[in-house]
């Protein structure tokens, strides 16, 4: 098994942004009998690295104007690249928490922080410049799920903790025989998943 990676630093997010994000992933993934806290699982590091790289720069997005608002089904239509949208959303969310509770998001009691995130997700935290609901559903939430379940080579899912939790065996996935032997039965390989790191 790979040793636990040391807590890597942030490359895109500033200290206040990183503190906010760590508080968010610790609410979304609290330390419990299933996994360590989101921060300790590497979730915030994963998100920072993705935003700092090709994804955050919108490397594969069509980015020419004009910029017109459309139906949600026509997809994201802002000139901002994902990394900029993320940071803008963080700034709005931090301000909204401050004005609602009189303290910063990371200082909130877990129940308040959880309720605040729910309000963001359901569109109840309104800002006249930026849709926090879109920010959450289109950017933060997909990144959160990827951070949990992507290969640990990307910095999240530390020690394959989420793969062990659900029983995803990972690599190398040569199942021609297992497919028959374990059809309809628990697969022992699911207890000890392997990642790209184990083969690198």
């Amino acid at each position: 098994m790979q040793p636990t990676a040391p807590n890597a630093g942030y490359t895109l997010l500033g200290p206040e942004e990183a503190t906010f994000l760590e508080a968010v992933v610790d609410i979304m993934c609290p330390a419990d009998s299933l996994t360590p806290s989101g921060t300790d699982c590497g979730l915030a590091i994963y998100i920072d690295r993705q935003l700092a790289g090709d994804f955050g720069k919108g490397g594969r997005m069509y980015s020419q104007g004009p910029w017109i608002k459309g139906k949600p089904e026509q997809g994201y239509q802002l000139p901002m690249k994902p990394a900029e949208f993320f940071k803008a959303g963080v700034a709005v969310a931090r301000q909204a928490a401050q004005s609602r509770y009189g303290k910063s998001f990371d200082q909130l009691a877990p129940a308040d922080a959880d309720a605040f995130l729910s309000d963001i997700a359901s569109g109840k935290v309104v800002d006249d410049r930026l849709s926090l609901a879109d920010w959450f559903s289109q950017l933060l939430y997909p990144l959160f799920q990827q951070a949990c379940f992507a290969d640990p080579v990307y910095g999240g899912n530390r020690d394959k903790v989420f793969w062990k939790m659900i029983g995803y065996p990972g690599l190398p996935a040569f199942y021609a025989q297992d497919m028959v032997t374990y059809r309809g039965k628990p697969f022992p390989g699911a207890l000890t998943p392997k990642s790209i790191l184990d083969f690198s």
Binding site: F55, Q146, P172
Partner: peptide, 25 residues
């Protein structure tokens, strides 16, 4: 090639084998 072929994020989620939308959509 293994192990990189089994990378869900790169191929399955970010679709790096599909058309690059920054060039043509």
């Amino acid at each position: 090639r293994l192990p990189s072929q089994r990378d869900e994020l790169r191929w399955g989620v970010r679709n790096h084998l599909a058309q690059d939308w920054s060039i043509e959509t």
